[in-house]
Design a protein around this nucleic acid. Structure first.
Length: 292
DNA sequence: CTAAAATCCTGGTGGC
DNA sequence: TGCCACCAGGATTTTA
């Protein structure tokens, strides 16, 4: 038997604003720790985190289920549960969206419930899964069919469905500014504020550029840039910013995000920040000149 | 169709 | 030092 450290099974904490790479990191870390464990009890400390079913149904349904596997779709964490004693429905999905400040951590042994803990699952072998979410934007579902949530989402950026041709066609079916469009989860699923700015910088495109003016060449570069920044993010185990300690390293490799007043890594021009929608947007005014 | 605004939240920040 | 208005930010909903 492994001699676990006293508290944390997964010592990593993750970042604010979990985007695709951060959720991917969480899914990979939790997979080995949680798979095969039985959920013994659910403790809900902020009922509005739970979208469906009702809190009482949730507390009744979850105990005795087994955690089969974890996966990620866009920014959602999908935990497959098996109901060993159910004849009608052998599996269900426990789905988390971490919102802006949500985090999942696992603890072994005694645990003092924290100020921002919203949901706590007691697991077999004295393990605990904690959903901590200071800003309460995170959401939890327990549902039979995850398609209810996932069917609204656009393509997965790292999947084969996402191609330069598909992106070009989608860009030209609409007439929208690039940044809000890339943040639209029904257009492309998984990008958030950080990775959108980083991808637009790599592709040398202005965030307000109108989508239907992109050439095939520009679209191909943006497609490659999106994949590159997401893959980098995953390789660095996500990004860690703000006041909470987290485990990722990608924040040390941002090219523009949060780098207002600092030199562009490509041309040395001072990075600027502007507001688009309600999002802080960082870009290089020289590399990313408007061209429409 | 697109877009802007409002909504939900709290910890951090800046002004005084 | 304390108080407080203000703000970020993902996704959804409402309004234009």
């Amino acid at each position: 038997m492994v001699n676990w450290p006293n508290r944390l099974l997964v010592p990593l904490r993750h970042n604010d604003m979990p985007e695709l790479p951060e959720v991917e990191t969480i899914a990979r870390n939790l997979q080995t720790v949680l798979s095969g464990r039985i959920i013994l009890a659910a403790e809900l400390y902020w009922e509005r985190s739970l979208i469906v079913p009702s809190p009482s149904q949730f507390r009744r349904l979850v105990p005795s289920t087994e955690i089969v596997s974890l996966s990620r779709r866009a920014k959602y964490l999908d935990i497959l549960l098996a109901f060993p004693h159910s004849f009608r429905k052998p599996t269900r999905h426990l789905i988390f969206h971490l919102g802006m400040s949500g985090d999942l951590l696992t603890v072994l042994g005694g645990y003092q419930v924290g100020q921002h803990d919203r949901l706590l699952l007691r697991l077999s072998e004295d393990a605990i899964l904690v959903f901590n979410d200071p800003r309460k934007f995170g959401r939890v579902w327990l549902i039979d069919d995850p398609g209810v949530i996932f069917s609204r989402l656009g393509p997965e950026p790292l999947s084969d469905d996402f191609t330069p041709e598909q992106l070009f066609s989608a860009f030209h079916r609409r007439r929208r500014q690039l940044k809000p469009l890339l943040l639209d989860q029904s257009f492309l699923a998984g990008l958030g504020n950080i990775y959108t700015d980083e991808a637009l910088f790599l592709a040398r495109l202005h965030p307000l550029r109108c989508s239907d003016t992109l050439t095939g060449e520009e679209t191909a570069q943006l497609h490659a840039a999106i994949r590159q920044v997401l893959e980098e993010g995953i390789a660095y185990h996500g990004a860690s910013i703000d006041w909470v300690y987290r485990g990722g390293e990608f924040q040390n490799h941002f090219r523009v995000y949060g780098r207002i007043g600092k030199p562009c890594p490509r041309c040395g021009t001072t990075i600027e920040r502007t507001l688009i929608g309600r999002r802080g947007t960082y870009f290089c005014p020289l590399c990313q000149r408007r061209q429409d």
